[in-house]
Structure formats: structure tokens, C-alpha cells
């Protein structure tokens, strides 16, 4: 019960902050805001029931730093590939069994891989994740595994043994 209250409090704080940013800090449309925040809260409880994970802020910070570092590194690599006279492409599709439990964790993994240059999630089934990579000569497995660990740390999820 207490954890439910805490989730509600955190989520309403989050939505209020988003609304405050959207209206650029004005105060004259609080009525519409109140309705929107309540609707967003209800929708969030339907789409993402509480008590599945516990959000960790330090984990989130670690994840963000790691994410932006990788994304910058890979972005430069892909940009170079595009500009070079002979784009040395070796695309291939890899299959990886995600260690994260089903649900939010895997969805975040899929989307993160989509944003990291050089990897593109093609399909996600119950047991496997199909990844299209631009350069098959680079090992993608270790990268995916360390992203998994970061996400698990962020949501305090248990990783399955592979």
C-alpha cells in the first residue's frame, strides 16, 4: 500500500513537471493541466502497472552517461562510413537471447539498441532479439550484454543466466 502511494506520488510529480515545462512555466492554464495530469496518471497505471520494478536514479545516471558515450562514438563511425568514397559496409543479422525479463526491460533494450549507431533491432520474439548490424566484424555481443546490465541496474531487475 505504501509503495503504491509512493509510486502515485512520484508519477504525479513527474507528469506535473512535464506539464510545467510544456506550458513554459505559465500559471494561467492550471485547470486543463490538472485534467491532463490526472488522465496521464490513469493511463500510466493502465499501461505500466506499479510494483514491477523499482527505479534507481544512480542507475539511470550511469545508463545515460554510458548511452551518450556509445551513441557519440558509434555516430561518428557511421557518419565516417557514409562520407568515405568507398563505404565499407558489412551488414549482417545477429540473434541474441536477452537476459532481461520480458516487459519494460526488453522494450528499453530494443529501443536503446535502435538509437545506438551501428545496431538496429529488427524483430523481438519471446526468446530472441534479432539485431541488424552495419559491421559484422565488430563484436556486438559484449556491447549488448553491458547495456543489459545497465538497464537491469536502472530498474533493479534480475538478469537471467544465459
Amino acid at each position: 500500500m505504501i509503495s503504491l502511494l509512493r509510486t502515485t506520488l512520484y508519477r504525479s510529480m513527474f507528469f506535473t513537471a512535464v506539464w510545467w515545462i510544456l506550458i513554459e512555466g505559465k500559471t494561467d492554464s492550471w485547470f486543463v493541466g490538472l485534467i491532463s495530469i490526472s488522465l496521464a496518471l490513469v493511463t500510466s497505471f493502465i499501461l505500466l502497472p506499479p510494483n514491477q520494478f523499482r527505479f534507481s536514479f544512480t542507475g539511470f545516471a550511469h545508463f545515460l552517461i554510458y548511452f551518450f558515450g556509445l551513441s557519440l562514438k558509434g555516430g561518428i563511425a557511421v557518419a565516417c562510413m557514409a562520407i568515405r568514397p568507398n563505404p565499407d559496409l558489412h551488414p549482417n543479422i545477429f540473434t541474441i537471447t536477452p537476459r532481461l525479463p520480458e516487459g519494460l526491460g526488453r522494450a528499453i533494450l530494443t529501443n536503446t539498441l535502435n538509437l545506438l549507431p551501428g545496431t538496429l533491432s529488427v524483430d523481438l520474439t519471446l526468446s530472441s532479439l534479432y539485431i541488424h548490424v552495419l559491421d559484422e566484424r565488430q563484436s556486438i555481443e559484449t556491447e549488448v550484454r553491458s547495456i543489459e546490465e545497465k538497464i537491469a541496474h536502472m530498474l533493479r531487475l534480475e538478469l537471467k543466466k544465459s
Binding site: G75, V78, L120, V122, H132
Partner: peptide, 14 residues
Amino acid sequence: VYTRLHALAKVDNL
């Protein structure tokens, strides 16, 4: 189309 998605969704996002 897959390699083009790489160019678009990532480099442009950066």
C-alpha cells in the same frame, strides 16, 4: 532499407 535506417535514425538523431 535497413542500412538507410541506420543512417537516418541514428546519425540524424545525433
